[in-house]
């Protein structure tokens, strides 16, 4: 009795999950489908598999430039945020630290405030300093924005590590740098990797802050935004599919990397 009702519940849950997944992923699947299938005036030509749109995409210089800018911005802002988050977390955890509260406020605020406020403040800041806007200012804007995510993850990991680990390292003759490299970094690595992926995703599709700070530079979201006025072409489907495959690949890499080494506490 209880077994069959359990099975019923499990089946129902399974259907529900499948339905949710279907609704969530239908647009994605349709987009991916349209990127490889010919759509003509007479309707959809189901038989006509072609990578033509990918070829078109490859020739669309403005989109390719936007993608390149976005990747550069994401990579730079994430790298900057990684270094900053580790430095800040180490400082905040140090027993002699002053102004902990203030630092945390400064780190979290840009993430919590509406992006308009963050973007506008940075715009005014750069304008006052006479810094011309471009890729560099977007990178700074995104670093400030994604720092909170990395900082939180790094700090949580750091706080979970016993202080004796670092004392033991020093006790065995390691300098601060050696301790950082051989003990601290291996312990933080998985948290940093997770944070970096999250931050990368945030930075990749960040639009509002970019609008304020872009100047002449164009990131992918800005480019898509601009294209909305003139209408999309199916090469956008090709682009979205590629981005999706890229994200899935990233997720798989992270989950594979994190298991064997990273999580071996105790």
């Amino acid at each position: 009795m209880s077994l069959s009702s359990e099975r019923l519940a499990a089946t129902a849950a399974g259907f529900l999950a499948a339905a949710v997944l279907a609704v969530l992923y239908a647009p994605v699947v349709i987009g991916a489908l349209f990127s490889v299938i010919e759509v003509t005036r007479n309707g959809i030509n189901w038989g006509g598999f072609s990578l033509a749109w990918y070829g078109k995409l490859w020739q669309n210089q403005s989109i390719l430039d936007a993608v390149r800018t976005t990747l550069i911005v994401s990579a730079c802002s994430v790298s900057l945020a990684i270094v900053l988050s580790i430095a800040l977390a180490l400082y905040v955890e140090w027993e002699g630290a002053i102004g902990r509260r203030l630092i945390e406020l400064v780190v979290y605020l840009p993430f919590l405030l509406p992006p308009i406020v963050t973007g506008l403040s940075l715009l005014i800041f750069f304008a006052n300093l006479g810094i011309s806007r471009g890729v560099a200012t977007i990178v700074i804007g995104h670093s400030v924005f994604v720092l909170a995510v990395l900082y939180r993850l790094v700090l949580t990991r750091l706080q979970s590590l016993p202080a004796t680990l670092f004392e033991a390292s020093a006790d065995l003759g390691a300098t601060r740098w050696q301790t950082l490299r051989h003990v601290l970094w291996p312990q933080l690595r998985s948290a940093v990797a997770t944070g970096a992926i999250l931050a990368f995703t945030l930075s990749f599709d960040e639009t509002l802050i970019s609008v304020f700070l872009a100047g002449d530079a164009t990131t992918l979201p800005l480019r898509l935004w601009a294209m909305m006025r003139v209408g999309f072409t199916p090469e956008i489907n090709a682009l979205v599919t590629l981005v999706l495959l890229f994200s899935i690949a990233l997720a798989i890499i992270v989950s594979l990397r994190m298991k064997p080494e990273g999580e071996m506490e105790e």
Binding site: P162, T164, L165, E167, A168, S169, H182, V183, P186, Q187, E261, M264, E265, E266
Partner: peptide
């Protein structure tokens, strides 16, 4: 150390 403080990695 009392908690041994072995490096887990």
């Amino acid at each position: 150390f009392q908690d041994y403080a072995l490096f887990p990695h």
